[in-house]
Computed example of a mutant assay.
Amino acid sequence: MTHALTLANFSVPSSAGSLEDYIQAAQRVPMLSETEEQELARNFRQENDLEAARKLVLSHLRLVIAIARGYQGYGLPQADLIQEGNVGLMKAVKRFDPTRGVRLVSFAMHWIKAEIHEYILRNWRLVKIATTKAQRKLFFNLRSLKQSLTTLGQEQVNAVAAQLGVKPEEVVEMETRFSGGDVALESGSDDEDEHFAPIAYLAADSSVEPSMQLERKEYDRLQDEGLRSALAGLDERSRAIVQRRWLVEEGSEAATLHELAAEFGVSAERIRQIEVKAMQKMKALLVSQT
């Protein structure tokens, strides 16, 4: 079931005034009992009752505020952190299943933190410093483990690596990224000598425009779906050969013709013939889908 759940549906306390006024208004919203929460959640899931969803969101705004306060050390506006957390709260309400026997407060914490994390990673540095799931985990944990702004010593690096289950080199790399300051793209001075800021050397790149990115993402999705469909049209042996030869995971090595020949009990030439035939069939299937 699709629920039209957006910020427009909610009369949340206004943040146009002071942040303290917003926080006080959110704190005045009554908390729900477990019975009330269950009933509202059922009404929303079964009847798309947006008023029920609104009450669920408003009653948990104080949770967002409490979580957002834990991320003040990143130098980002608390109001923005709260706003992003509210988005995560609405996503949690949309996905909350009252039949699981879990309170919304426990379920929502993950979604609230996830949205705040994404916001921090997008805005804390002009160039993202954490691009993989492992790096993101290290990013937030290293920030919380550091006791000062000084560079970590080797013993500290080893201790952090052991505690987080990563390699010492990864800790050092992330620590180095933390230590690097941002470089202004544009000069803040009127001095002619300062006019040659980095922005002057950057050519406009239309590929980063949102419309182009969306188009490229949709193209990649269609290509991926087409590839899966084409693979499904092969027999089991042909599919295995194509996957082992051309679709290995990054960091893994593709199987050779001789390795596959030994595995399937045929000659290397026969493996090559099966591969060629399979690729031709996949190409025909992909063309027919466009």
Rank of each mutant, 00 (worst) to 15 (best):
V102G: 04
D80Q: 05
M90Y: 09
N86T: 04
F107K: 04
F96Q: 05
H110F: 07
R125F: 04
G101T: 11
P77G: 09
R122P: 08
L89A: 08
L121I: 10
R95C: 10
F107I: 03
A114F: 11
H110K: 10
A79F: 00
V102I: 03
H117K: 12
R95W: 09
L89K: 03
I112R: 03
L104C: 14
L121H: 00
I116V: 15
P98V: 02
K94E: 14
D80G: 13
S106C: 06
G88D: 11
G85F: 00
L89V: 11
S106P: 09
F107S: 05
D80K: 01
S106T: 13
Q78V: 14
E115K: 10
H117Y: 13
L121V: 05
A114P: 03
I112W: 01
P77T: 04
I112G: 03
W124V: 10
K91E: 14
M109R: 06
R125W: 05
M90E: 06
E115S: 12
A79S: 13
H117D: 12
P77F: 02
L81V: 06
K94L: 14
T99I: 06
A108L: 06
M109V: 08
D80M: 08
Q83P: 15
E84A: 03
G101H: 07
R103M: 10
T99S: 15
T99Y: 08
M109H: 06
E115A: 08
